[in-house]
Simulated scan of single mutants.
Amino acid sequence: MDMGAVRVRNGRGSNLKNAAIAFLVPLPSIIFYLKFLQHHYTCSLHPLLLANALFFLNVDLFFWLIGLLQSSHWMIDLYWTVIPVLLVHYYATHPALRHYNWWRSRVVILMTWVWAIRLSHNYFRRERWQWGAREDWRFTDMRRQYGRHWWWVSFFAVYVSQQVFLIGVSLPLYVVHSVDKPWNVWDSVGVAVCACGIVVAYYADTQLHYFVRRNYERKELGLPVVPNLEEGLWRYSRHPNYFGEQLWWWGLAILGWNLGQGWTFVGALINTMCLAYVTKLVEARMLQPEYRANAYRLYQKTTSVWIPWFRSSPLKHDSKKNT
């Protein structure tokens, strides 16, 4: 028997199994909420408390158990793009949240779908259109770091922490559906910032995708790979994809502030702090391969971390270092 054909069949079987799991896992929360709406249950829980309760039971506990059984916590990475969509529809239909501006709601729902489709497309493109082929490299590193304790540490490090992030950054989606105020210029500003974030992140991730693919093709042909991507948006920022993602969440924070709920900026702030830490990890990872280390150090000296800006001369940094 051809072992290559066996591996292909096994891979397809695993891909279909993971796809089925991904579609089925949110059903408990969805079915419960549909029943909740159908029977008009009187729930004493605040909409945010109910959202957190469903998240804890369906994502933290259920996803965690599946991750333990599969020895891979791949699913939370995929659901980063799905949960905000579920939340925005949850807030838009909750019986306790009936007084809000219809147009603002529809614009935010549409933008959330566009954001989610873009991010999902990038996820599957990066994973070569496979479901659950691998988990986030940061989780894999932590798995090695914590060893036999990872089974319980993962519950907090992977899932409970994600609840804080996702519920936090989605707070403006709640505010949009809990405050009735006419559309004004600051709504337009917030929407413009969100749209810019989606566009910047799309082009940055697309440029990175083609760079990785070209390097893979060069490697297959026995040609030397290009150490760094320094073209397009990446010429002006070392992490333009992160910059675009932050614009999206801070644009939503502007909407929350405009509706008199400035406290909702805390979600965008937490996300920015998280991305700052992730940036540090990514840059340390970029410096590990010898073929790329020197070129990336030079890239760090001349190129802005997040906010796109004109490149500086490496001689300028060397002169500062020598004075």
Rank of each mutant, 00 (worst) to 15 (best):
G4D: 14
L252V: 02
R138M: 07
I31D: 12
V193T: 03
V59T: 06
F211T: 00
F63V: 04
G251C: 02
E127F: 01
P26L: 11
H39T: 14
R311G: 11
R7G: 02
G132I: 02
A22V: 07
V175G: 03
I83S: 03
A53H: 03
S105Y: 00
P182R: 00
I198H: 00
H99P: 02
I254W: 06
S319Q: 15
L27N: 04
W186V: 09
F56D: 07
L119A: 09
G260Y: 09
H149F: 12
L86R: 00
N271V: 06
M3H: 10
D180S: 15
Y202L: 13
A192V: 11
L48F: 05
F310G: 11
H40C: 11
N10I: 03
V85L: 13
T264I: 03
V226M: 10
T93I: 05
R218D: 13
Y291P: 06
R98A: 15
G147L: 01
L221Y: 00
V191W: 05
H239V: 08
V191Y: 14
V266S: 09
Y277W: 15
L315M: 12
Q162D: 03
V212P: 00
Y296H: 11
W257R: 07
S29N: 06
K320Y: 14
L221F: 05
W249H: 09
L252Y: 11
L54A: 09
K280A: 15
E220I: 02
Y236M: 08
Y203R: 10
L68N: 06
R125Y: 12
P308T: 01
G190A: 05
S29A: 15
T81K: 13
R143Q: 14
V278S: 14
N15F: 05
Y242D: 04
R104A: 12
A295T: 13
L247C: 14
A204M: 03
Q288I: 14
I76R: 00
I83A: 03
R106C: 01
M286H: 08
S120Q: 10
G222Q: 01
A192R: 09
W186I: 03
G4P: 00
L48K: 01
V25W: 01
Y216P: 00
W248K: 04
D187E: 12
L34Q: 14
A19D: 00
W103D: 02
S44E: 13
L16N: 13
A195D: 09
P172E: 02
F55I: 04
V225Q: 08
C196W: 10
W102M: 06
L221T: 00
L252A: 08
L87G: 05
L252R: 03
V59F: 08
L97C: 10
L252C: 13
R128Y: 12
F139A: 08
K35E: 15
N18S: 07
P28Y: 07
A192W: 07
V179N: 09
L229I: 14
I66W: 06
P240W: 02
I21G: 01
W257F: 11
